[in-house]
């Protein structure tokens, strides 16, 4: 009898302690993720002298010396522009090619469907950036070397499989009956797609587009292999790692990270659905 009474008193206590432990661990893990980013931003928002000083301050001085040096550094503006251009092209290509394929996979049964799925899934076992090596030669022959579109094509091999799988699950989530209802109400297949499926799938498609953009924005190896004059920001930073001063690196790092943070925030609602599904 007494043990029961003790237990019923002890249980909420233990539960409370467990909760505290849980919350504390989660906060600790959040700090683990956020602190390094914070420190990079502190560096980016400090003057070049402060960046190399010892000991350092743990708070930014909001001196824009590093950032303005970075922005005005030869080639940076162009690299930023190239990154945006390549990422935009990658986004357009991977959604433009991927979404129709995703739609076909979600709506039709046809011979060859499994082969296509296998082809898409196969890309995952390959270190895809390596394919930039042979393509470098091919691009020189076709005049695609050192162009935004050339690099975007390689980045599309990275982003396309995701676009296919994500749009496949997006379209599968929209009941076929909605489309069929539209057909019986006088729509052609194209009209039904435009009036019913597209409005419903658009937020998801936009999210996967952002995802494709991010993949390209972040890619380093292929970008470094395929561009010389028209470097993207990642390729530019990689090239200048050896010689450039620290404050330039940190300002560049921040320039890479901040947009990525915004992208991830923009698609946060879809993050889990997309990754969970795309990787099943």
């Amino acid at each position: 009898m007494s043990t029961v009474a003790e237990l019923s008193i002890a249980a909420p206590e233990a539960r409370k302690a467990g909760n505290w432990l849980l919350v504390a661990t989660v906060i600790l893990l959040c700090v683990w993720v956020l602190l390094p980013i914070y420190l990079l931003i502190v560096n980016a928002l400090s003057s070049p002298e402060e960046v190399t000083a010892f000991p350092k301050r743990f708070f930014p001085s909001f001196d824009f010396g590093s950032l303005s040096f970075f922005i005005n550094f030869a080639g940076v503006a162009r690299a930023l522009w190239n990154s945006v251009l390549v990422a935009t092209l990658t986004m357009l290509l991977s959604i433009g090619f991927g979404a129709p394929a995703g739609y076909a996979l979600s709506r039709f049964e046809f011979p060859g469907k499994e082969t296509f799925r296998f082809l898409v899934l196969m890309t995952r076992a390959f270190p895809l950036p390596l394919l930039a090596l042979p393509l470098a030669v091919m691009f020189i022959r076709t005049g695609l070397d050192d162009t935004a579109i050339g690099l975007a094509l390689v980045h599309t091999t990275l982003a396309l499989p995701f676009a296919v799988l994500i749009t496949f699950s997006l379209f599968s989530g929209i009941p076929v009956e909605l489309e069929e209802a539209a057909w019986t109400l006088g729509c052609t297949r194209l009209q039904a797609f435009r009036k019913i499926i597209l409005p419903l799938a658009l937020p998801g498609i936009a999210a996967s587009a952002v995802f494709a953009f991010t993949i390209s924005w972040n890619e380093v190896f292929a970008a470094a292999v395929l561009t010389i004059e028209n470097r993207t920001l990642t390729a530019f930073l990689l090239q200048s790692l050896g010689e450039s001063p620290l404050y330039l690196k940190f300002a560049g790092g921040a320039a890479l990270v901040i947009p990525a943070l915004i992208f991830i925030f923009a698609v946060r609602k879809y993050l889990f659905a997309m990754w969970g599904i795309a990787n099943r």
Partner: peptide
């Protein structure tokens, strides 16, 4: 289907979620 002069009611209703009831009925 659109050229057959039919209308259909589906098992799961297939009411378009992004349109109002009015626009659903007006769709066809």
């Amino acid at each position: 289907p659109r050229e057959r002069g039919i209308a259909m009611v589906f098992q799961n209703y297939a009411v378009f979620p992004h349109l109002t009831v009015f626009e659903n009925i007006a769709f066809g």
